[in-house]
Amino acid sequence: MKSIFDYIAGIFKGVWSLLKGMTITGKYFIRLDKIVTQKYPENRKKLKMYDRFKGELIMPHDANNFHKCNGCGICEMNCPNGSIEVISDKIITSEGKSKRIIGTHIYHLSMCTFCGLCVKSCPSNALAFSQEFEHAVFDRNKLTKVLNNPGSSLVKDLAE
């Protein structure tokens, strides 16, 4: 007799647990305000990344096209994947000393793991991460970027 009772009790308990589960999905079915989906390309205007978001490596230039990179190559040394190549030039300053300046600062976005060691290790704070996150391009070559703008120069030169 007890087994029959257990059998029936088991059915009711099981069905009750199932109904409780259905209340959760049923609740969200009618709560349309709980929808979390974001419509991505449409909300591009509103979409704001966090300040520290590591999008891609950039070299900030000021309004007069000056940057802070002196071409020391520490970022290249610190990069674990070899995604930074610094090609520096030698120039002769007005005082007759030879001086190293940055020629091209090449950044391979395709190899970057966004560890942030280059930004952290840069002694002159010349590098930063941008908030750009749409990296898709049709040509792989476009992922290799030159960070210093053409015609730009070191900000210290202005002071001299």
Partner: peptide, 12 residues
Amino acid sequence: FEESCGSRLLHS
């Protein structure tokens, strides 16, 4: 994580 570390999954 993104707010503090800058990345969501692989923080370093």
